[in-house]
């Protein structure tokens, strides 16, 4: 079976005998491992694809991804992004300072935005290299995350409380662009679209339901209608949102370490593929044996479910490669 077939098997039929999928999120780590600067990794798909392929080879990953810094969409909306050699790019502009800025926001063309286009080229390149054998994950910012990128998080959270109408207008605007960007990535060759909406972890359930939940449903339905699989990513502690996540319709969900997999399973049911959830700080700091033991416990505990091993979120750049190999061994361990 190819890796793509394995993923399809898990989603359609349930766990694979003797093997757990290994789906860690690698960005800065991948850049370091692939010998490219983080600036190149973020801005140039050649570097991003090459670094992912190097990690695919070395760590036997079950996917490759086009994920990087959060500012592809923000740059399409017109913000200036500054690329630093070994740090996450900086967004230099806050485009939405008050409600009047929302109506002035352009609706960018995915195919005319350098960063968005670069991601599409990356998807095409992955497909040329891998020919459908390995799942390719594309990425969009979720509506609240993108609104926070545009208005900054404090500004956006204040807007949610003070001006619900303007908040809805902004969220609608970014959702429309998110849908177009997701569709274009599927068209370009992505099998899966990740929706990153970490800002949701910081809001209460009522705020989530009032402003975000229906838009998540709409985005997920749109991705499905274009033939994409959805990976839902809200890192941080989302325990309070699990009841609201039920019924959103995603196929995979990333769970961060503060969330109990059992709690998520109880809320979301057996059909969702849960990925997670060792603390990336542990993976970074512990000796390889300790990482192996912790991952082994996760794998053993969830091998009978739709489950894939991953960190709670991105694996840190300074993580020793041996620790990632220890994770891999744990994922493959029950084959032995």
């Amino acid at each position: 079976m190819t890796k793509k077939q394995k993923l399809d098997h898990v989603l359609r039929h349930g766990p694979l005998p003797g093997e757990t999928l290994f789906l860690p999120i690698l960005m800065h780590f991948a850049a370091r491992h692939g010998g490219v600067s983080y600036a190149e990794f973020c801005a140039d798909h050649h570097a991003r694809v090459a670094a992912n392929l190097a990690c695919l080879e070395r760590f036997d990953l079950d996917c490759v991804t086009l994920m990087s810094d959060p500012y592809a969409e923000t740059s399409a909306f017109g913000a200036r992004i500054e690329y630093l050699p070994e740090a996450v790019p900086r967004c230099r502009d806050v485009l939405v300072r008050d409600a009047s800025d929302i109506d002035a926001l352009p609706m960018p063309d995915v195919f005319r935005s350098e960063r968005c286009l670069d991601r599409l080229r990356g998807a095409e390149r992955f497909q040329r290299e891998l020919r459908g054998t390995v799942p390719v994950i594309g990425w969009v910012e979720g509506p609240l995350a993108e609104a926070c990128d545009l208005a900054d998080m404090t500004g956006m959270f204040t807007l949610l409380m003070m001006d619900p109408d303007a908040s809805h207008r902004l969220l609608d605007h970014v959702l429309e662009f998110g849908k177009a960007f997701a569709a274009a990535q599927i068209e370009a060759g992505c099998d899966i679209i990740g929706i990153g909406d970490a800002a949701c972890s910081q809001v209460d359930e009522e705020t989530y339901r009032t402003f975000v939940r229906d838009r998540h449903v709409e985005l997920i339905e749109h991705i499905h209608s274009r033939g994409g699989i959805v990976k839902f990513h809200v890192c941080g502690n989302t325990t309070h949102l699990l009841p609201s996540f039920a019924g959103l319709g995603f196929d995979l969900i990333d769970l961060d370490w503060p969330v109990g997999i059992e709690d998520a399973r109880a809320a979301l049911g057996p059909d969702v593929l849960v990925t997670g959830n060792i603390d990336p700080v542990e993976v970074l700091e512990r000796p390889a044996d300790g990482v192996y033991d912790a991952c082994r416990a996760l794998v053993d505990g969830h091998r009978a479910e739709r489950y894939a091993l991953a960190g709670g979120c991105e694996i840190g750049v300074n993580t020793p490669p041996d620790n990632l190999l220890a994770m891999l061994r744990a994922a493959r361990s029950h084959a032995a």
Binding site: M153, T154, F157, T158, L160, M161, Q202, V203, T207
Partner: peptide
């Protein structure tokens, strides 16, 4: 965890 960041921000203001 009975209130979250948006409510904290309003209290701060």
């Amino acid at each position: 965890r009975r209130i979250f960041v948006p409510q904290m921000l309003m209290s701060a203001k």
